[in-house]
């Protein structure tokens, strides 16, 4: 077994184990952390395939941004695990059928002639693929790249235009008005004559 094979099996085993852990642990926060670990190991697998850009992006985007958001959401939700596990037996037959169908489909694809390892082109270029992507992204593809940026800008404008609003019925405090308050707005001095002793 070569060193590369050892690395591959090591990270594949960790990926599968963490994926299993993700669906079996009771605590949802632990499940998310297992998912993060699975992504991390998949990123390592990408790097063994000489696709280091995909590996880095997987860590940066999924682990760094998406999963952190996911973790926030999971922590804030009050999930009742017992309720989620109800009906496990009832849905088991359906789940088994779907799983079997997927296994058969995967088998068909992996057995097809286009997906054999021999037909799979190796990355022959000596250029690291981050550099290769960088070379075309701002030259050959500069126009589509910039349009994609404009699409994102429009998405931001649209999101803000549709959600930023003043609701007259919502109760919120305005700190700038709170600190500018004056004494006579808070305290009212009422002059009255002294009352007689109660009997």
């Amino acid at each position: 077994m070569s060193y590369l094979q050892f690395v591959f099996y090591f990270f594949s085993a960790l990926t599968i184990l963490s994926a299993l852990g993700m669906i079996t642990v009771k605590n949802p926060v632990h499940a998310v952390l297992f998912l993060v670990f699975a992504f991390f190991n998949s990123a390592a697998l990408w790097i063994t395939l000489r696709a280091e850009f995909l590996g880095i992006v997987l860590v940066l985007v999924y682990v760094g941004a998406v999963m952190v958001l996911f973790l926030f959401v999971v922590m804030m939700l009050d999930i009742n695990i017992a309720k989620l596990r109800e009906g496990f037996v009832r849905f088991l037959p359906l789940g088994v059928i779907v799983a079997l169908a997927m296994v058969v489909e995967l088998g068909l694809i992996l057995g097809a002639k286009y997906f054999q390892l021999a037909g799979h082109p190796q990355n022959q270029s000596m250029l690291p693929n981050t550099e290769a992507l960088g070379n075309v992204l701002y030259t050959q593809y500069v126009y589509p790249f910039e349009i994609a940026a404009v699409v994102l800008l429009v998405a931001i404008i649209a999101a803000i235009a549709l959600t930023l609003r003043r609701r007259p019925d919502s109760k919120y405090t305005k700190p700038e008005q709170q600190i500018a308050i004056e004494r006579n707005q808070r305290v009212r001095i009422v002059k009255m004559s002294a009352e007689g002793k109660s009997k």
Binding site: Y143, A148, V151, I157, A158, L162, R165
Partner: peptide
């Protein structure tokens, strides 16, 4: 003149339209 720009142009146009239709909140 390429499938990429056709798709991006279409999405840019559609995204603006979706927001404009929802403008009257």
């Amino acid at each position: 003149h390429s499938l990429l720009t056709i798709y991006l142009g279409l999405e840019l146009m559609s995204l603006a339209l979706y927001a404009m239709v929802a403008f009257q909140r």
